[in-house]
Amino acid sequence: MTSFALIGAAGYIAPRHMKAIKAVGGDLKVAFDPNDSVGIIDSHFPQAHFFTEFERFDRHVDKLHRRGEHIDFVSICSPNYLHDAHIRFGLRAGSDVICEKPLVLNPWNIDGLIEIERDSGRKVNTILQLRLHPAIIALRDRVAASNQRHSVDLTYITSRGRWYHASWKGDDSKSGGVATNIGVHFFDMLAFVFGPLQSQTANLREGERAGGLLSYEKADVRWFLSVDANDLPDGVKGQKTTFRSITVDGEEVEFSDGFTDLHTRSYEEILAGKGYGLEDVRFSIEVVSQFRQLPVVTGGEKHPFAAKYIKG
């Protein structure tokens, strides 16, 4: 039975990892989170050890290793700015790593992890679940079969309450900002479908929302991301808290369903030796890191949702 440790057990995404570990026949041996609101563990692995202090968690993992109960994978669901340190812990503990998006906040962090990966002989895997979504795979196949250059609009609005800005997610130095926190896997998906990025422009960069332009090998993309419920389309407000939309040449690509099992699919691929590693994620990390530094351009082409917040 494949054994796991989990860092960040109280987070929003942790239950999907617990479910995935259970689904692939794994065993969660130990979990850590400074917050003790982790009763969800009982639904999956009630016998798992749990610690609220990293030092005690570290000691327990080391004790397991020394008595021959090796941890095969360390799964990481901690705040974005801690991913780099927690990946390093997992590799140095002699385990392979599965880390939530964004893997790290800056591309130079990847270079350091490559060295530790090489020294440890272990592997870092990341969750790029949209690459496994059937609708996205079908779109990629369709684009690959055509020589046409496409016009794309990407819109993703996921409502967050006031707590969001009081948490680490509202601190750009810890989350990377809206584009990084909720958008990095969309940028990976766009490159997966439309090829290498050629250029990008920042049109909007605020605490609640962001928007810009991306030029790929086979597409020009206008994008808008938001955590403000006020940005939801009128037909969605009061009915749903999330709105996802991708249009290609004016045609909607339906991919709203099928998200809940993609973490399990990701774990299946990783255990089969087909996970996405450090170099696979470099491109999307470069995009969001660069976006944070770009000057904001208010004139010219822009996403329709972003236009009302932009003067110029």
Rank of each mutant, 00 (worst) to 15 (best):
D111K: 14
S95Y: 13
F89R: 01
L113Y: 11
R92A: 03
A85P: 01
G94F: 08
I87H: 01
V104A: 00
H83Q: 03
N106R: 15
S78C: 10
R88F: 03
H83V: 07
G90L: 12
C77P: 13
L103Q: 10
A93D: 05
C99K: 05
N109D: 14
R92C: 06
G112L: 02
K101Q: 06
P107G: 09
G90C: 08
L82R: 13
D111T: 15
R92S: 05
A93M: 15
C77F: 09
L82P: 04
L82I: 03
P107T: 07
V97W: 11
H83A: 02
P102N: 05
L105W: 12
L103Y: 09
C77G: 04
F89W: 05
L113T: 13
Y81A: 09
R88Y: 02
A93R: 15
E100L: 03
A85V: 09
A93S: 14
G90N: 07
L103F: 08
G94M: 09
C77R: 08
N109P: 08
A93N: 13
R88H: 06
G94Q: 10
V97P: 00
G90W: 14
R88P: 01
S95T: 15
F89G: 02
D111H: 11
R88D: 10
L91W: 01
P79D: 07
N109V: 11
N106E: 14
L105N: 09
N106Y: 12
Y81C: 07
D84K: 15
W108D: 10
D96H: 14
C99M: 02
N80R: 14
W108S: 02
L82Y: 06
K101W: 02
V97Q: 01
W108Q: 07
V97K: 03
R92M: 14
P79E: 06
S78I: 03
L82K: 10
P102W: 01
L103A: 07
A93Y: 15
E100R: 04
V104P: 07
C99Y: 05
H83K: 03
P107M: 05
V104W: 07
N109T: 10
E100S: 06
I110A: 03
I110K: 01
L113F: 11
L113R: 14
C77H: 12
G112K: 12
S78V: 06
R92W: 13
D96I: 05
V97I: 14
G112Q: 09
I98C: 01
G90F: 14
G90P: 15
D84V: 06
Y81E: 11
D96N: 13
F89N: 02
H86P: 00
V97N: 00
L103N: 09
S78T: 08
N109E: 15
D84E: 15
D84H: 15
L105Y: 09
